[in-house]
Nucleic acid binder design. Sequence first.
RNA 1: GCUGAUGUGGUGGAAUGGCAGACACCGGGGACUUAAAAUCCCCUGCCCUGACCGGCGUGCGGGUUCGAGUCCCGCCAUCAGCACCA
Length: 805
Amino acid sequence: MSNIPPYNPMEIESKWQQHWEEDQSFAAEASHEKPKFYALVEFPYPSGAGMHVGHIKAYSGLEVVARKRRMQGYNVLFPMGFDSFGLPAENYAIKTNTHPHIITTKNENHFRNQLKKIGFSFDWSREISTSRPDYYKWTQWIFLKLFENNLVFRAKTLVNYCPHCKVVLSNEDSQGGKCDVCHSDVVQLPKDVWYLRITEYADKLLEGLDTVEYPESIKQQQVTWIGRSTGAFVNFAIDGIPEKLEIYTTRPDTLFGVTFMVMAPEHPLLDQYREKISNWSEVEKYRDECARKTEFERTQLVKDKTGVRLEGFEAINPVNGKKIPVFIADYVMMGYGTGAIMAVPAHDQRDYEFAKKFGVDIIEVIKGGDIGECAYTGDGAMINSDFLNVYDNKKASIAAMLEYLEEKGLGHKGIQYKMKDWAFNRQRYWGEPIPLVHCPSCGTVGVPYDQLPLKLPDVENFEPGTDGQSPLARIDSFVNCTCPRCGGSAKRETDTMPQWAGSSWYFLRFVDPHNDQAFASKDEMKYWMPVDWYNGGMEHVTRHLLYSRFWHRFLYDIGEVNTPEPYAKRSYQGLILGSDGEKMSKSKGNVVDPLDIVSQYGADTLRLYVLFMGDYTAAAPWNDDAVKGCKRFLDRIWRLMEMLSDEKGISADLAFDVNSCIKKVSEDYEKMKYNTAIAAMMTLVNTFYAKGSVTRDELRALILLLNPVAPHITEEINVLCGLNEGELLRAAWPTYDESALVKEMVEMALQVNGKVRGRIQVPTDLKQEDAQEYFLGREEVRKLIGDKTMRKLIFVPGRLINIVC
RNA sequence: GCUGAUGUGGUGGAAUGGCAGACACCGGGGACUUAAAAUCCCCUGCCCUGACCGGCGUGCGGGUUCGAGUCCCGCCAUCAGCACCA
């Protein structure tokens, strides 16, 4: 073929992108006739910095699958939008005194343009943004449904508070005691907070994991985060006070080994009965010390147990009536169980260390360890335990003790979760207003559905109040309202929802984004849901992924959606590190701007590179030279046009190569093994070069396979050579000829005692039973055996023969 | 400490228990060129050798197997998540 223009990515990419936009090439079809495929990638927060190469990798994975599915005849929904509420826009607003709405719109436009320059096949007609009123109307609607169903409650408890951001954080947002936004130390403050009762859904969230296709690491992380344990609540009487001290234990079998009790320093019973405690000043001093300790100190001081004995408090072990001392110590947390424990030093290492330090008795109740050395947590025969002494294992003695406790009314079975309820309000401006009204006579009342959306009012000053109030609290016209129930004067809730609210249901909006009667029509949900394949980052596993499963399961329970789980399958991508092997960050100066790569090499090279750089799920450092290698590969493909022959069909000598490449690429895309799929195509191109020519159908097969990864160059080659009628994006995905995958002769390794000694050409259809005779007849085999006697011959068809002497 | 993952050339990484290092990067050599770039071809795990032959090699130590990067047991290291959770 003559007159081939040079490969000019800039020119052909913008040409095709413009065509796709005008043609609406990637809009999902309205008809529900075809089989559907809903591919979802986590929509971005539209930050001012624009796109990161990490976004490109995160989206490219399912981009390939989505394009392949279209070619396979599916109706594909591959949507994109913006998770646009959040602190960075607000902080920037404070700094520049610009409305966050303006900043957000500008950033969204920037992001959208950048995404289009990569050539992603998103359906832009369905774009959503969580900060637009027609979207957050429905976020508020779902919140009201949660409220109606008693899954929203207000409580004054110790909460995670970030003094820098001046905001209350959920447990999920303050992992490791650090604020997720600014990474400063989070402090514990008593505060009135709105909670969503996610713990009510703990079991459903656990059970749901058995029905979905998530990687084991993700399932495990969610299981750990939910942290379900079974045990017993037991009441201990305290001498001289009417109330019982309730504890939670997973080891009721060790009750006879209890020699003391420990309460969290913040336990409310202490204040209630302070006059009973003769060393109260010591208690107060210890409480102060604990409150001042940072999270870091608390975790670093694990070895050294501290605490104070409560003078005047004595507890009674309910199973044997023994009097035991009571302590406060900060190794017991107020936030888990009941904030008090029974201590069994013989069989719990923490209790053991505490007992050693404070000189408390240690009573062994399970045989098997050496309690002179350390606590024994294993299984064994019961001793010193009255009626339990007949048992020789945990399971049986726990069952027996539970029966006893319930019969005597001393306690009962119980379940505990490490997961806490979701602290849901933020004292900030740029979020969904919580649609609740505080009425002096009716209490808390939901805003009527027909008044949604409750719009975010304009404010002059976005700075949070020093009194821990949201900026909305300063807008009298917003705050003062009438009670929807009694019509009397009332005040609005002024806090807003957290970052994670809008993203907890966005996948539902995509199926019907312009509906103003419902968040989505039942009909569209029935067709599109669940999401068939969802890809995103590991950092969202204990937040977004858990929160959205919770909301969706709730909507299922009240009959609003048709599937219990939102995502049938979830995958994740590995990080792209800087070329120095460190995490990319502005301060390290190792950030790669994807648009720089696009302008230098083209979007196809960038897409190819992020998928070729290694295992999709593993972290890998950026390498500029390897990017050039990817460009080189596309150049080589372009130049294949120079060696295009007029021949049709696939030539006999390449039938195996072409067909096995089709098979490999088709399978590898499904397994997200993009790197090996691309390697297979590189091998095929090398084969074409070695031969020096390529037929039209051979080239056609190659560009069809490569099209999902590098759509621009392949569409251009198709047009220049007229290989395929119509655009590749609508062409049928190539199929392979099974018979072409079988060669007549195959090379096998020749091993002696497991060591490779040579290679041998063998007919492919050689049978196991004929193998010995065949090989012993071959001279190279006899030579290898020499005068040794063959004891055994291992024959693995197509692979090797191993002669054991 | 618990849970999950990972450990392979100078580098990124391939390999249903069956020829370790596919594919690519870097490096070396050659062709083309006045020259350079680009391109094309060849070499490229380590040791020995002029070359062949050979030996050693998948974090470490054992084991199972005709055969182990892959399976089992015990370590070490790295990454991620959880963590005084009773």
